[in-house]
Simulated scan of single mutants.
Amino acid sequence: MRIAFYGSSLLSAYWNGAATYYRGILSALAAHGHDVAFYEPDAFDRQQNRDIDPPEWARVVVYDATPSALAAVIEEAARADVVVKASGVGVFDTELLAVWDHAPDHALRIFWDVDAPATLAELAADPGHPLRRRLPSLDHVLTYGGGPPVVSQYEAMGARSCIPIYNGLDPATHHPAVADARFAVDLGFLANRLPDREARVDEFFLRPAALLPERRFGIGGSGWHDKAMPANVTRVGHVGTADHNAFNCSALAVLNVAREDMAALGFSPATRVFEAAGAGACLISDAWEGIDQFLAPYTEILVARDGQDVADHLAALTPERARAIGDAARARVLRDHCYSDRAVTVDALFREGLAIKRARAA
């Protein structure tokens, strides 16, 4: 089966939180025998900040952010059995909707939403939005989170089918590693600075740092260089994916803070939840609906309602308990939340859908 996937970037996680999700899902699909082609624009300095070389399991086509280069990659959809347009490519997002027009009659047409809260807000504000008009003609909308609230909203807007394909773990990529002195803190937090996350970072990360001036805090990710922070917070800047395991294994605990819209919807575990759990890190997460569907509170993950809860968890945490929680989380994600498991669902969906369309055509 030939899969043509149009997304932000497979090769670079620079200002591109979906990269590890794409890698996990698509490498696992390739293991089912599928031929994967990934089309990404040369934009936002991502090609100058690659985390990986082109992988063996996918043909990666990097195209110039120009109309002529866009037209050339859109034409390649004509050779695919499954044509996927992801959300948040960043350039030519509206123009890329045309990939579905170039797909063969038998092909599945998929919109894969890696930021459902933002997409749904945009569609709700504009009933004439080009993507919203196309939803009834698509075979499936797949999302990387959101659960029942996202499914119901997409179906209300005309989608035939909306299925969450959650983030997961690739154990070959994220696993326990040797601690690194650069990241040796009591609480580590890794995320890029975004407007709809900043107030929650103030509450769940910076407030605990102010409450516990004797403890060490570390923040990684892009955009934090000019943010005012307590003296016990160390900024480590952009952390490439090659260093994620060391980051997760060097702190007593690792913090997860959902963006505001994702926390409101619930059922949206970030990629870093599974990456940290796969490394055996002790996770402290802000509270959101559905968290117990993925990890058991207080035995596999510590859940905080606010910054005071984070400070209380950290103050009471011993290395022994942190290790026990991290070990339990790792065992759980290895058992229930690997990308290989997610790919089984997607593979069956694609095979069944193609069989139905081919039977109808015959």
Results as ranks from 00 to 15, higher is better:
Ile3Phe: 01
Leu11Gly: 04
Ser12Thr: 11
Trp15Ile: 04
Ala18Asp: 00
Tyr21Trp: 02
Phe38Met: 03
Asp45Phe: 14
Arg59Ala: 15
Val60Gly: 11
Ala65Asp: 12
Thr66Val: 13
Glu76Leu: 07
Glu76Arg: 14
Asp81Gly: 00
Asp81Glu: 11
Val82Ser: 04
Val82Gln: 04
Val83Ser: 04
Val84Cys: 03
Ser87Gln: 00
Val89Phe: 02
Phe92Met: 08
Asp93Lys: 09
Asp93Gln: 06
Leu97Thr: 11
Pro104Gly: 04
Phe111Met: 10
Asp115Trp: 05
Pro117Tyr: 02
Ala124Glu: 13
Asp139Tyr: 03
Tyr144Ala: 13
Gly146Lys: 02
Val150Phe: 03
Val150Ala: 15
Glu155Pro: 00
Ile165Ser: 02
Asp170Lys: 01
Ala172Gln: 13
Phe183Glu: 05
Val185Leu: 06
Asp186His: 00
Leu187Trp: 07
Arg193Val: 01
Ala210Arg: 11
Leu211Arg: 15
Leu212Tyr: 09
Leu212Val: 10
Pro213Ala: 11
Arg215Val: 03
Phe217Gly: 00
Ser222Asn: 12
Asp226Trp: 08
Ala228Ile: 08
Pro230Lys: 00
Thr234His: 06
Thr234Pro: 00
Arg235Leu: 12
Arg235Ala: 11
Val236Arg: 09
Gly237Asp: 03
His238Pro: 02
Asn245Met: 07
Asn245Leu: 09
Leu252Val: 10
Leu265Glu: 10
Pro269Glu: 07
Arg272Cys: 01
Arg272Glu: 03
Val273Phe: 11
Ala279Trp: 02
Gly280Cys: 11
Cys282Asp: 03
Ile284Arg: 07
Ile284Cys: 04
Ile284Phe: 09
Phe294Asp: 09
Leu295Phe: 14
Tyr298Asn: 13
Val310Leu: 04
Ala311Met: 06
Leu317Tyr: 01
Glu320Gly: 02
Arg330Gly: 10
Ala331Glu: 15
Leu334Tyr: 05
Leu334Lys: 02
Arg335Leu: 06
Arg335Thr: 11
His337Asp: 10
Cys338His: 09
Thr345Arg: 10
Phe350Ala: 06
Ala355Trp: 13
Lys357Cys: 01
Arg358Met: 08
